[in-house]
Design a protein around this nucleic acid. Structure first.
Lengths: 249, 249
DNA sequence: GAATTAGATTATGTATACATAATCTAATAA
DNA sequence: TTATTAGATTATGTATACATAATCTAATTC
């Protein structure tokens, strides 16, 4: 699954995750993507990969010129991005690429923890078919292997894969889409902390436990484990950032 | 709190809930609300109160003319509404006011259950000050009184108030905003079922129990009670709709 | 009468025009 | 030098123009 969330392969013309779209949908759309859609993807990628200075102002005409289009589609893309929470449209000062403060990150993690663990709960209740569990399991294995190799980018990619598959098993498209959106918002921060934090060795134990509980259909336990897993991860992240003195990202 | 969610007082120039805005913010904004904002509010109100035929197509020029504005601000408002999930912008067939199928309602309730019970959990952990609990308690009392009087609209209004205050106690603006958005989506359906369903006599026991657990700081229990309360309500709603043979709303 | 095709119609995506209000610049006065 | 104000500049919100492609209409052909 190729996604802007997945790090690595810098420089390639990467495609941003079009929220809530399957790959084939995306392909279809891309054949005749409107300028608005292209502007949206392009701007989102630039924001997520830090190619805009956070906290700085950009004016509509600048953005339009930068993308080689007129203001109209640029404006429409900006409206979408501001609704997703990535930017603010300040009345007269233009576009502000939203900085993420510790406080925002806390909120984002609370949302993700809530929705993901609900998805886990739903998944366990459904008792997914074995084949649907395969992806999950291989993602866990990939994480193990990546850790052994010390390949943090691969680990992060597999982690994303695991979480997204997990959410998909919940079978709720709105939850899936929301998790995607908030995941994207935290992307910049996750990429940053990946290199700072201690290696995530123990997190795979939780992953395996969640998978097991889903297979057993133990919804409550699966939810609990995942909830606590996420809570732990969130707290680790926040304390890490605080210890490094980051207040804005 | 005056809100489009609250039924009754038909005909008055009611104001729609501007998502995530406090009342004073709203007032400020309203002084010089842009046509886009006004179009957004106006369309949202019409959608939520069923003044558009669900499932029917409306063309951009129609909408613009209907609102007495040009296509540009109408279009921008439509983009916002489609991102909120109230409408679909079909490639060439115009605007489709999204019908809500049972399946959608199920998803929406899962999202609400998840986020609300997280907010409850967070609230209980924070141990809100007494004065912050007052609103909650009076909302519960209002529901009781409304039930005695048999005033369903008042009951619904107090119920909304209770849930929104509860979510606010969670102190997470993203959760609050999301709950608002999904609440709005289910508004049409809730108004419909209000008159069909058995009187919600027992639901206040849960409400009081949640309040009590928040006061005691028992986060796990508060969450559990609320989660089950919401689950019950959701299942009731769905089975009610099914028994009446509704598949689309 | 049915079907196919050419022309007309028009919704959309995008660009551009324009009025307004906010900001900036510069000049004049104290 | 500092303050104040008038004029210039320009970002935004909105309207309008325009090209394209899709749909509809009607006419012609079988």
């Amino acid at each position: 699954m190729e996604s802007a969330i997945i790090p690595g392969e810098e420089g390639g013309r990467r495609r941003i995750t079009e929220n809530s779209m399957s790959k084939s949908d995306l392909d279809k759309k891309n054949q005749k993507a409107s300028l608005t859609q292209k502007a949206y993807s392009e701007l989102k990628e630039r924001i997520m990969t830090g190619k805009f200075s956070v906290g700085e102002h950009y004016l509509e005409p600048e953005i339009a010129e930068m993308l080689g289009i007129s203001r109209t589609p640029a404006r429409e893309a900006l409206i979408r991005l501001s609704q997703e929470g990535l930017i603010d449209l300040k009345p007269r000062r233009g576009v502000l690429v939203k900085p993420i403060f510790i406080h925002d990150l806390k909120e984002i993690y609370e949302v993700l923890t809530s929705l993901e663990s609900t998805a886990v709960w739903l998944a366990a209740k459904r008792r997914p078919a074995d084949k649907d569990m395969q992806g999950l399991k291989s993602a866990v294995d990939e994480m193990d292997e990546a850790l052994v190799r010390g390949d943090l980018d691969a680990w992060a990619a597999a982690d994303v894969k695991f979480h997204m598959l997990l959410v998909e098993l919940g079978n709720n498209s709105r939850i899936r889409q929301l998790v995607q959106t908030y995941f994207d918002q935290a992307h910049r921060v996750r990429m940053l902390t990946l290199k700072l934090r201690p290696k995530p060795v123990d997190s795979n134990m939780d992953h395996r436990a969640v998978v097991e509980m889903i297979e057993k259909g133990n919804a409550e336990e699966a939810r609990r484990i995942h909830y606590e897993h996420r809570e732990k991860a969130g707290e680790l992240l926040l304390s890490l950032l605080e210890s490094y003195g980051f207040t804005q990202l």
